[in-house]
């Protein structure tokens, strides 16, 4: 498991969310969210389903639009300005629950597509970078295959590598292991742990409490669209303050 010593948190602010509110129609999904993420910080967001945790991280790269408050990512405020949105998106990597690889492209093409078209990197250089990250997630031999030919765990590692090829400064993980067979969860978590050791700023929505204890320096618990409790992992798990958190923890750790 990871050694916390290598992972350093700086004072620099990576993400600043102030008084943010979001509605789906008339339904108030996110209520008064205030949150600051420092560069190098690794945050795990957990909570019951429907608590708004996925919506929260999807607001950070504007896959969802917020209606009130402010989200500033790397000094750029997210508004309806398309230029800002594209700038933030190219700086923030995202890994989805269902991988969302492009099934009509090979693994290598999946990895080089965005660097070539968004970053205007020459094809050869993009391929070298792609092979570097494929080696890092330990599947360089699959480069010529199509996503449909890979196992779930392999696909998710490709998805992580695809995000890394854009050299993002922040990584968002939206339940990256929830759609995987138990045997494959570990290989994906190992990849994420390695990433954390390299000092990546990460926000993970996950139910993997072992991962939270090993690498997170903060755990955020959400319920009904609000941040209910946040603390460093040791305190959070051993000494939860609110009743809602206690109930949640007893339910997921109880068996």
């Amino acid at each position: 498991m990871a050694t916390a010593a290598k992972m350093t948190v700086t004072d620099e602010v990576a993400i600043q969310i102030t008084a943010m509110n979001k509605w789906y129609g008339t339904f108030h999904v996110l209520r008064d969210i205030n949150m600051t993420v420092a560069r190098g910080e690794r945050i795990v967001v957990c909570g019951p389903s429907g608590s708004g945790k996925s919506t929260l991280i999807r607001c950070i790269n504007r896959l969802e639009e917020h209606q009130q408050g402010q989200i500033i990512v790397d000094g750029t405020e997210l508004t309806s300005d398309l230029k800002n949105i594209d700038k933030v998106r190219s700086e923030v990597g995202m890994v989805f629950q269902h991988f969302n690889l492009f099934p009509h492209l090979t693994i290598l093409e999946n990895l080089t597509l965005a660097p070539i078209w968004v970053r205007k990197v020459p094809k050869k250089e993009a391929e070298e970078v792609a092979m570097h990250f494929l080696t890092k997630v330990k599947i360089p031999e699959q480069a010529a295959k199509y996503p449909g030919q890979l196992s779930g765990g392999q696909q998710q590692r490709v998805a992580i590598a695809r995000s890394l090829c854009m050299k993002p400064r922040i990584m968002l993980f939206d339940e990256p292991t929830s759609a995987l067979d138990p045997e494959m969860i570990k290989e994906v978590l190992d990849t994420m742990i390695e990433l954390a050791e390299d000092g990546m700023t990460m926000i993970c929505v996950t139910h993997e409490m072992g991962f939270a204890q090993a690498v997170a320096n903060r755990v955020i618990f959400m319920d009904q669209g609000q941040i209910v409790e946040q603390n460093e992992p040791k305190e959070f798990f051993n000494n939860p303050k609110s009743d809602r958190t206690k109930l949640f923890l007893s339910q997921i750790l109880g068996h």
């Binding site: 790269n61 700038k87 998106r89 269902h98 969302n100 492009f102 995000s163």
Partner: peptide, 23 residues
């Protein structure tokens, strides 16, 4: 097409026409 394909294209920073043409 699953919505995830649009989201993946968006999250990588592709603009509308790039996403339409390539993905």
């Amino acid at each position: 097409l699953p919505r995830g394909q649009y989201e993946a294209a968006d999250s990588l920073g592709l603009d509308y026409w790039q996403a339409q043409r390539l993905i």
